[in-house]
Amino acid sequence: MTDARTAILGRLRAGGGEGPLPPLDTAVMERRQWPPAERVARLRRGMEAVHTEFLDATPADWPAVVRAFCDREALPNLMFGPASEAGAALAAAWPAGGTQLLPYDRPVEAFKEELFTTVAAGFTGTVGGVAETGGLLLMPGPAEPRLLSLVPPIHLALLRASTLQDSLWHAVKALGWGRSLPPNALLISGPSKTADIEQTLAYGVHGPKRLIVVLVHDLA
């Protein structure tokens, strides 16, 4: 459709977007800042308000905290990305028996149906969190496939308190997302929800019904 492109761009150029660009005053974004400890509380408040659950953990015991959750919930299995840092650490510490760890280590086409029907929970790391509104930042990829945080009914996400950003605005800068991005990156603030029926909130409409944040308290 080269001709459509030429015609559209031609019309836009003829339509003329002349004039000086209005200045951008970003003070309102910049000033949304909190001390590190308050960031954690804000994120938690924001996410709990939309039904996110939190598990407190230390840098040493978080795999055990994940395991304890799986035992408590009697989860038959937990899918994870074995090549990711968090996934590898989890697998290394995972006791035999009980909840089975399923590696997401092959193209989804090989087990799409199984992923949709038999996987009970997915585990992922995060690359940060957003204090202002609450929210996790994820960069899925080869080590942690995209659907881990989407298809299973429960999503467990590992979040280190030290990685919290003040706001999405600050996070975009801090993570360098503004310059280059992987094929997929996202913010998740809670379990899947809808208000399409009479404005009544209902959770777990398409994606995870539960979002469990394993919060690692690693602030000095």
Binding site: V130, T133, G134, G135, L168, W177, P182, N184, L186, S192
Partner: peptide, 11 residues
């Protein structure tokens, strides 16, 4: 204040 998902697709 925020949606559940903010999805950035770059490829």
């Amino acid at each position: 204040a925020v949606s559940t998902y903010f999805n950035l697709i770059t490829g």
